[in-house]
Structure formats: structure tokens, C-alpha cells
Nucleic acid binder design. Structure first.
Length: 137
DNA sequence: GCCAACGTTGGC
DNA sequence: GCCAACGTTGGC
């Protein structure tokens, strides 16, 4: 089992949209490192859902329900990009804000801080555990 | 709205 | 292959 974090701008596609829809095609990623992370996702992996920009915080947990396949939004050939599909698992009781994450010494090396512009990233098991704990979920 | 970080593009 | 210009992301 692997752990990941994906970012989304809540004004564009937030947790509320995700849960209302029940399932999301995670497409549109156009960064090689993020794409490689999408490709490494396996069925049942746990995915933290992060709201960027307006209220930066981890807001919920999702799981991988379809592994990487060619991104259907790409029209050029060859298609270098991939999509996965995610389903919501549960909302966090308390969103874990970026400020909290930055204030936590044990999360100093989390990819969210080290590579602030990456939109799909791996999370270590210990980081994942701590984030869940901070969420009171 | 501003700015830092950083990825991409294109000239040479 | 180097680097300047430029665009995008995302925090504040």
C-alpha cells in the first residue's frame, strides 16, 4: 500500500465536487514528475486530497479505483500523459492546514513543502499517519 | 496583487 | 549545451 497526495484548487474542483460526483477522473496533469507518480499508483492506494490556493489544507482521503491509463483529454499523438480514477473515502474531521504542517517538525521533509509546485506526490507512511492523527479522523 | 520557485521554450 | 525570457503554480 502506497500513500499519495494530490492537489486541487477548490474553486476549480474541490472536495465537495468530488464527493457529490462520487468518483473522479484525475486527468490534465502536465508535469513529468507528477505523471510518473500517477503511473506508480496502485488500486487501493490511499490518496490525501489537498486544497491549494484559497484555503491551503488537506481536507480528505480518497483511494485509487483505476490505475493509470492514457489521459482521455489529450488529443496529440503520441499521448504522453496519463489519468487515474479516484473515489472519496472520508472527509477529514478537521482539515489539516498548510500552516499546521509547516509548524510540525516531523513534517519538515514532506514533499508538499519541499516541492511546493508538484501536484501529485508520494507521502511516507509516517507522514500519512501523522496527518490522519492531526485530522482527528 | 505580488512574488518566489521552477518548468519550458527558443535563440545562439 | 547554455541561458534568457516567459508562463504557471501556489503561498501570502
Amino acid at each position: 500500500m502506497n500513500f499519495w497526495l494530490v492537489k486541487s484548487e477548490p474553486d476549480v474542483y474541490g472536495w465537495a465536487h468530488f464527493t457529490a460526483q462520487g468518483r473522479a477522473v484525475w486527468d490534465g496533469v502536465r508535469n513529468y514528475q507528477a505523471r510518473n507518480n500517477l503511473s506508480a499508483m496502485r488500486l487501493g492506494d490511499q490518496v490525501l486530497f489537498y486544497h491549494s490556493v484559497s484555503k491551503p489544507a488537506v481536507v480528505g482521503l480518497a483511494t485509487v479505483v483505476r490505475e493509470a491509463y492514457p489521459d482521455p483529454t489529450v488529443t496529440e499523438t503520441p499521448n504522453r500523459w496519463v489519468a487515474v480514477e479516484l473515489e472519496p473515502v472520508m472527509a477529514f474531521e478537521q482539515p489539516v492546514t498548510l500552516a499546521q504542517i509547516k509548524a510540525e517538525p516531523m513534517l519538515a521533509t514532506i514533499a508538499l513543502i519541499r516541492q511546493s509546485r508538484l501536484s501529485v506526490m508520494p507521502i511516507r507512511p509516517d507522514e500519512f499517519e501523522l496527518l490522519l492523527k492531526l485530522s482527528d479522523t
